[in-house]
């Protein structure tokens, strides 16, 4: 049952307070460094969450080393199982703020089942996917997010697998908060971390992460100054979906399909451009946006695809306990032991 929260005057923490004495052991240039830095920078701002109530859970992979570097409660577990362990932590102790750090293999291959069910149940977890589209720790095999045709150690002639689109998968699994960001877009990433933290329910944040060793440059087109404006669509609630250096391109609906078009005189009107609604109850448009990533003719959206409110699994479990207890009264072991047909032997 929830511990009594005693209000005390908080001293404002800094990023340093969240660092541990462990040497960080990722490869030079690995995108995981930036993700760690942005988490440590944004955590002091999390409203109403005490440091001792934060728990990081991970599976296995380069990215799963994450909890060792966060000065919070942490659990580096086994491959793929972080969402299930986190569910156990959160359901049994709803007052904790529970975070999952996972790689694309970890979360979507071996742990795919746990991931979709955590989404479906809307367990109040914050799930950060470090998507480098490769198996880092095992040294460079293709992953369930690797593009078809990718040449890796286990696919010397090109992989024949179709990849998952993680944001679309999360939306399809009824996640109540789905967002995407980039390791190198530090401001945006911090903003997305804060937004995820503030969401009550399962928050899924996909982070495109560069693996400098086995998949270097996979997201350059989205992060290089020269190419990013034409290839990244920053989703903002209530704003038209415009992109390009001069914001002269936009997304319109062509029948039931989004389409990238040029805006301006003799071209498309800005009024025709889709306006982003993060809070749309229907996941349809968010799903179409998520799938734009699979289409080379479309920019890749980042930002919050969708955020909706519904009761959480852990909250509902607690509520059921309260309501049954108020009806039946606190459990009495003696009474339970002696229920049903009993008889006396004298």
């Amino acid at each position: 049952m929830a511990d009594q929260i005693i209000e005390t005057k908080e001293i404002k923490l800094t990023a340093k307070d969240f660092a541990t004495d462990q040497d960080v052991r990722w490869c030079p240039g690995c995108g995981d460094y930036s993700i760690l830095a942005q988490v440590q920078r944004s955590f002091p701002d999390l409203v109403g969450i005490k440091k001792e109530n934060i728990v990081w859970i991970s599976g296995i992979g380069c990215s799963s080393r994450f909890p060792y570097y966060m000065n919070t409660y942490g659990f580096h577990s086994i491959h793929g199982r972080a969402p299930a362990i986190a569910t156990g932590v959160k359901v049994s102790r709803p007052e904790l703020s529970v975070w999952v750090a996972a790689g694309d293999g970890d979360l979507l291959s071996i742990g795919g089942n746990h991931f979709i069910h955590a989404c479906r149940k809307n367990v109040d977890l914050k799930v950060l996917l470090f998507n480098n589209r490769i198996y880092g720790l095992t040294k460079g095999q293709y992953s369930p997010t690797s593009e078809k045709g990718k040449i890796t150690k286990t696919s010397p002639y090109g992989s024949v697998d179709y990849p998952f689109n993680p944001a679309a998968l999360a939306l399809g699994s009824n996640a109540t908060f789905v967002a995407r960001s980039l390791d190198r877009d530090t401001k945006h990433l911090q903003e997305m971390i804060r937004r995820a933290a503030a969401h009550k329910g399962l928050a899924f944040l996909e982070i495109f992460q560069n693996c400098s060793i086995f998949n270097d440059g996979a997201f350059d087109i989205l992060t290089d100054k020269k190419t990013k404006d034409d290839n990244v669509l920053v989703l903002e609630h209530g704003k038209p979906m415009l992109f390009g250096a001069n914001k002269d391109k936009g997304i319109i609906m062509d029948g039931a399909k989004p389409k990238a078009v040029e805006i301006g005189e003799g071209k498309h009107r800005i009024e025709d451009v889709l306006v982003h609604d993060e809070f749309d109850e229907s996941p349809l448009l968010a799903t179409l946006l998520a799938h734009m990533t699979d289409d080379p003719s479309m920019p890749t959206p980042i930002g919050v695809f969708r955020q909706v409110t519904k009761s959480t699994y852990d909250g509902d479990v607690e509520e059921q306990i309260t309501s049954v207890t108020s009806k039946k009264g606190e459990g009495d072991l003696e009474k339970v032991l002696f229920t049903g047909s009993t008889w006396e032997v004298n």
Partner: peptide
Amino acid sequence: YKNFGVKTLQAEDEIAGITSAIGAAFAGN
């Protein structure tokens, strides 16, 4: 036995059954 505060989680598979229990043990249950 909800009125004893018992929490039962019907998990997605046996692995989630035990790993959620491990999470709950870590959390002090």
